[in-house]
């Protein structure tokens, strides 16, 4: 067995989350008796991976929010890897942006970081419970589409 192309494409946590949730559902529906034998490895890794990514902001995302996010990001001149990290982590502080954007001090001004933060937090949904606590600060956000 060989990998043809070691890094074919980057996947966001959201895509993996969706794939694993669907697969889990499928396996549940088709009944375990026939196929569970010899699939302990798959069951283990699916369970552990889902457990990990369910704790990340990707569980509140949808294909629409991801698309909207990528469209808005076009204006910010970031690399694919940088956008992916913003999507996966949904940073809420400037220091997190500085970690995820390479040489951010030269490339971004303080205002640009601020507007990036604003875009990320307004487009990507966060934990609904936490947002309720934050909401007095984030009232400027344009309406609630959900």
């Amino acid at each position: 067995m060989h990998g043809k192309d070691a890094n074919a494409a980057l996947l966001s946590n959201f895509e993996v989350f969706q794939l694993l949730t669907d697969l889990k559902q499928q396996r549940k529906e088709s009944g375990k008796s026939k196929q569970s034998s010899g699939q302990q490895n798959l069951n283990t890794i699916m369970y552990e991976t889902l457990k990990y990514i369910s704790k990340t902001p990707c569980r509140y995302q949808s294909p629409e929010t991801v698309r909207d996010f990528l469209i808005t990001m076009k204006g910010h001149k970031l690399t694919k890897a940088e956008k992916l990290q913003l999507l996966n982590h949904r940073p809420v502080t400037a220091v997190e942006i500085q970690l995820m954007v390479e040489e951010s001090e030269e490339r971004l001004t303080e205002e640009q970081i601020e507007s990036l933060l604003q875009t990320v937090t307004s487009i990507l949904p966060g934990d609904p419970e936490e947002q309720q606590r934050e909401s007095p600060m984030a009232t400027e956000d344009k309406g609630d589409q959900e």
């Binding site: 070691a6 993996v16 694993l20 699939q39 490895n41 798959l42 890794i45 699916m46």
Partner: peptide, 20 residues
Amino acid sequence: EELNKKLANKVVYNVGLCIC
């Protein structure tokens, strides 16, 4: 099923940890 049996939760050299 065979591919998942063989690869899931295994590390492939210079590729990474296979999920599904």
